[in-house]
Amino acid sequence: MTRIFVEGRDKVFMEVYLAHLFGRNEGRWEVVSAGGYTKLPLLDLQFKENSEAGGMNLVVFDADFEENGGGFVARKSYLQARLAELALEADLFLFPNDKADGDFETLLENIVNKEHECLLRCFEQYERCVAGHCDAAGKPKYLLPTRKAKIYAYVESIKKSRREAERFKGGKEFFFDDSRYWDLNSSYLFPLRSFLETRVVG
């Protein structure tokens, strides 16, 4: 079995994407919410158990940005060092595409339905507008919305049936399996697809 460790907020996406690529699970994979890239020491037993059962471990975390202490090179190096230190066997993939800085939200921004991509531009205009307001000292007067808020706003803005609206309430459901929202065949996902295809056992 392939055990895929994700940071947490991306768990549903990963499950949907795996089903999109490989069909029914049938015990071939398991997605585990690690709770963050610093939590590997608390999860060593899950890695070891799967390795010793003949399975493969994958770590799919955010590369993050230099500004928040990450970045593709730094984060990859950090995680490789932690895995070696804990004697854990795992292959790494860092969002968004295993080469650039970024995170899960970066990936989502790049796989939105092209028809609704304008919503992201609208949000960016709003961000610029918010950033333009300064206090008397010339410093930003307001907090900028988070990047998660951008994704939330994108999903929220697309018209929904009553049932879909109910599912979306509180941001619990992002409709990853609905092509009106997301393009799971986007070329932006090729690196992730290629990573998974060679590691999820049939």
């Binding site: 709770g35 939590k39 608390l42 999860l43 037993l45």
Partner: peptide, 14 residues
């Protein structure tokens, strides 16, 4: 699973 790992696994629904 000692306490810390046990609690973490339960909290993460692992």
């Amino acid at each position: 699973y000692s306490f810390e790992k046990f609690q973490y696994a339960i909290n993460q629904e692992i």
